[in-house]
Amino acid sequence: MNPTEANPELTPDRTVQRGARQEALIGLAFILPACIGFGLFYLYPAIRGLWISFTDWNMLSAPSFVGLQNYLQVFQDEKFWSALGITFKYVLLNIPIQTVLGILLAVAMDRVVKSTVIRGLMILPYLLSTVVSVSHGESSSA
């Protein structure tokens, strides 16, 4: 007697469906911590910040809803447009220059130096300055 005839629930289609369902549940279990972290540390603060932007709130009293008044005020402020212009100039100039210089340095380093040890020694000052500044900041605040 064939096992599928004895138990009609064990047909190949049912077995594949059960396996796919289990695989989906395992996949969900793996991404659940990331989804919780995303919700707690990104989505909730973003939505709350958006809500606060529609209120007049000094953090000492209850917030009062003002609608688009804050946005109208910002768009009429000359300092906002000046800061936005400076930011755009910085991004349009700084990012391409850093990218090109980084690629040129990487290509030059690859062509000139083949030893991993020498490459490590060449990048060591960059790494050490970051480590020293971070560890110095931790020790001075303790």
Rank of each mutant, 00 (worst) to 15 (best):
1 M>C: 07
2 N>S: 14
2 N>D: 15
4 T>C: 03
5 E>R: 06
5 E>D: 11
6 A>P: 00
7 N>M: 04
7 N>E: 07
9 E>P: 00
9 E>S: 05
12 P>A: 08
13 D>C: 02
17 Q>V: 04
18 R>H: 05
20 A>C: 04
21 R>P: 00
25 L>Y: 10
25 L>F: 11
27 G>A: 07
27 G>H: 04
27 G>N: 10
29 A>T: 06
29 A>Y: 05
30 F>D: 11
31 I>Y: 05
32 L>W: 11
33 P>H: 04
33 P>M: 04
39 G>S: 14
41 F>L: 15
43 L>H: 11
44 Y>F: 15
45 P>W: 12
46 A>T: 15
47 I>T: 11
48 R>P: 00
49 G>A: 10
50 L>I: 09
52 I>Y: 07
52 I>G: 01
53 S>V: 01
53 S>Q: 08
55 T>F: 03
56 D>T: 05
56 D>W: 04
61 S>T: 10
62 A>T: 02
64 S>V: 05
64 S>E: 04
64 S>N: 01
65 F>S: 01
65 F>Y: 10
65 F>H: 03
67 G>A: 05
71 Y>A: 07
72 L>T: 11
73 Q>M: 09
77 D>E: 15
77 D>G: 09
79 K>G: 10
79 K>D: 15
82 S>I: 15
85 G>W: 14
85 G>P: 01
86 I>K: 15
87 T>I: 11
87 T>W: 13
88 F>L: 15
88 F>H: 12
94 N>G: 10
95 I>R: 07
95 I>M: 11
97 I>C: 03
97 I>W: 06
104 L>P: 01
104 L>M: 14
106 A>C: 09
106 A>T: 08
107 V>G: 00
108 A>W: 12
109 M>Y: 05
114 K>Q: 13
115 S>E: 07
118 I>W: 09
118 I>K: 11
119 R>E: 00
119 R>N: 11
121 L>E: 02
121 L>H: 03
122 M>Q: 01
123 I>C: 10
127 L>Q: 07
128 L>E: 02
136 H>V: 06
136 H>D: 04
137 G>M: 04
137 G>R: 03
137 G>K: 02
140 S>K: 06
142 A>H: 08
